[in-house]
Simulated scan of single mutants.
Amino acid sequence: MKTYICVAHAGGQGKTTVAQLLFRNILRKNSKYNLVSADFVDDTGRSKIGKFYPDQVDELGTGARLIAAKLENDPNAALRYWDKFGTILMRGSAVIDVGANVVSLLKQWAHHRSAFRVLQMSNAPPSEILLVCKAEKHAIEDVAELVSTIADNKFIPYEHVTVVLNEVGGSFGRIDVRSVIKEAAPDASVRFVSLPRCTSELWTQLEQTNTPIDRALEMSDREISETFGTDIWSATAGLADLKSWVTSVDKEWKNAGIFK
């Protein structure tokens, strides 16, 4: 089964939200999918998405510490650290949330471990790569650079590359994202999908309490009111808006071919 990899070249682009939406949709059809995070882990031992799904996330962290390489007297210790990432790709059936500070490390690992060739040789299941960006010049340029790297076979084999245009910070409007990416990677085949801003009154509470989107959708209006300490009017309207938003995103992504 496919591996879905959510990537952003900077923090705050919305990749964890994208990973949640992917995991929710896929899990309804295949309960054997795993959730993996290659991202910063704080003192609780959990990454950002790990806080949304406690004890359900395989936490890879951000790489081997420098002291590990010194103790082992092995300069390749940091590379070997990411072999587990490669093993997950070989197995498939995972949604991987890749932190911004990890992207460059994975690119180095893929290059030195000949990941593209090894994964092809091993008949690894295909990967779907989703690159997330907001309507910001530097974010779009970063995504274009990632597309260029992937298209040049410097990363891993993939079936599709999808750019998720996250409108949380505003509309892309006159920003010609396609042209920027086309200039950076003229031969790359890229799909584009939108992630509209969620206007539900519940969104802030979901973020602050690390409540997964799928969990909120399973709750009743009264459960929402009691859980988040809001009145029934806000709870009812907020839940209706959240359901409408998720339905619209699911529909667009399904039409784009992300979901079968």
Score class of each variant (00 low, 15 high):
residue 86 G to Q: 01
residue 218 E to T: 13
residue 184 A to M: 00
residue 50 G to V: 08
residue 143 V to S: 05
residue 82 W to T: 05
residue 99 G to Q: 08
residue 229 G to H: 10
residue 116 F to R: 00
residue 11 G to L: 10
residue 161 V to N: 01
residue 151 A to S: 15
residue 36 V to R: 06
residue 114 S to T: 14
residue 136 E to Y: 02
residue 157 P to E: 11
residue 121 M to E: 14
residue 179 S to H: 00
residue 117 R to S: 13
residue 7 V to D: 00
residue 122 S to G: 09
residue 183 E to L: 07
residue 254 K to D: 15
residue 124 A to N: 01
residue 41 V to E: 09
residue 193 V to A: 01
residue 105 L to W: 11
residue 156 I to P: 07
residue 17 T to P: 07
residue 191 R to D: 06
residue 141 E to S: 11
residue 83 D to P: 00
residue 207 E to C: 04
residue 216 A to Q: 06
residue 89 L to W: 06
residue 233 W to E: 13
residue 225 S to C: 10
residue 190 V to P: 01
residue 72 E to P: 03
residue 260 K to Y: 11
residue 93 S to Y: 02
residue 27 L to W: 10
residue 89 L to D: 02
residue 7 V to C: 12
residue 82 W to L: 02
residue 118 V to H: 11
residue 20 Q to N: 10
residue 107 K to Y: 15
residue 187 D to F: 09
residue 132 V to N: 09
residue 165 L to T: 07
residue 31 S to C: 08
residue 78 A to W: 13
residue 231 D to H: 11
residue 200 S to D: 01
residue 145 E to V: 12
residue 67 I to E: 04
residue 165 L to I: 03
residue 93 S to W: 00
residue 213 I to P: 03
residue 3 T to R: 00
residue 69 A to N: 07
residue 245 W to A: 07
residue 124 A to H: 01
residue 65 R to W: 10
residue 70 K to D: 14
residue 56 Q to A: 10
residue 140 I to W: 02
residue 164 V to M: 06
residue 8 A to E: 08
residue 203 W to P: 05
residue 235 A to F: 13
residue 85 F to N: 05
residue 158 Y to S: 08
residue 196 P to V: 02
residue 49 I to R: 10
residue 135 A to Q: 11
residue 222 R to E: 15
residue 247 T to L: 14
residue 124 A to Q: 01
residue 56 Q to V: 03
residue 184 A to K: 06
residue 231 D to N: 14
residue 105 L to R: 15
residue 16 T to P: 07
residue 89 L to H: 02
residue 176 D to Q: 00
residue 211 T to W: 05
residue 13 Q to Y: 08
residue 92 G to F: 04
residue 71 L to V: 11
residue 37 S to C: 03
residue 92 G to Y: 04
residue 255 N to Y: 10
residue 29 K to C: 10
residue 116 F to W: 13
residue 27 L to Y: 10
residue 213 I to H: 03
residue 26 I to V: 13
residue 7 V to I: 15
residue 230 T to L: 15
residue 187 D to S: 11
residue 102 V to R: 05
residue 110 A to F: 04
residue 93 S to G: 04
residue 153 N to W: 12
residue 53 Y to T: 04
residue 210 N to D: 06
residue 150 I to Q: 07
residue 119 L to S: 12
residue 15 K to C: 06
residue 80 R to S: 06
residue 42 D to L: 11
residue 64 A to M: 03
residue 232 I to E: 13
residue 163 V to R: 01
residue 189 S to P: 00
residue 97 D to K: 07
residue 64 A to W: 02
residue 255 N to V: 11
residue 143 V to P: 02
residue 256 A to R: 03
residue 194 S to V: 00
residue 237 A to I: 12
residue 193 V to N: 02
residue 199 T to C: 09
residue 98 V to I: 14
residue 211 T to V: 08
residue 23 F to R: 08
residue 43 D to N: 15
residue 250 D to L: 00
residue 191 R to A: 07
residue 24 R to L: 07
